[in-house]
Amino acid sequence: MTEDTASLLYLDGICVSFDGFKALNNLSLLLAPGEMRAVIGPNGAGKTTMMDVITGKTRPDEGRAIFGEATDLTKLDEPSIAALGIGRKFQKPTVFEPHTVRDNLLLALASDRRARFTMFARETSEEADRIAEILTTIRLVEQSARRAGDLSHGQKQWLEIGMLIAQDPALLLVDEPVAGMTDAETEQTAELLREINRTRAVVVVEHDMDFVRALGVKVTVLHEGSVLSEGSLDHVSNDPRVIEVYLGR
């Protein structure tokens, strides 16, 4: 296949079942390098399970997930996949609450992850510069010394996105980044994601249609574990099958 070489991520016939329930049913999806993709679908469509498969949390019963040239993600565990350059943001913001904002970013920065290194590691000036840079991007300069646990919900979301940037991944998976955000925060988040997308590929799972519209990217609609429709938001929202299962309620 010629597409293989041009793709960043290629999901090929992924099946996952939990006690007979098919969470993913022969799911195939192709993502080009540098692309931003929005994934939508009703509850139980398999969005989160798809993320789990890509990041190695769930091992599929069937299918492959090819990253880059020829790496099959289904054979790897979470840390190896993270090391390949795939970052993930959870639906519920998950930051290291007892640590300061700054330390959260420090831990996320791309560097040696092994215990024998971190035990004696000292912060380099490059690392300090990089952290300062990211703090500015995610608008948390003022909060840098605060406990992450004390941040507001929106600030935690940004910190987590900041940690993803610090990880310097080739592909970012973002699960419902604007859930529970104010309109202003939502807008800023869209801007932030577009900025990130300049240098890397992004997959966004989202319910908020306004937000998806604001992103203005190709949309994939999942339903019952497989792809129902794909294309621009206008294209999918006019697809009669999509209207039936998702939008036409």
Binding site: P79, A82, T94, V95, F96, H99, A108, R114, A115, A121
Partner: peptide, 24 residues
């Protein structure tokens, strides 16, 4: 107090998150 210790505390509270950051 080392970076190791910070990772350790992160593991204690949110183990899966540290995995997705590439720590073991």
């Amino acid at each position: 107090r080392s970076r190791f210790g910070k990772v350790l505390i992160a593991v204690r509270d949110t183990e899966s998150r540290t995995r997705f950051l590439g720590y073991r």
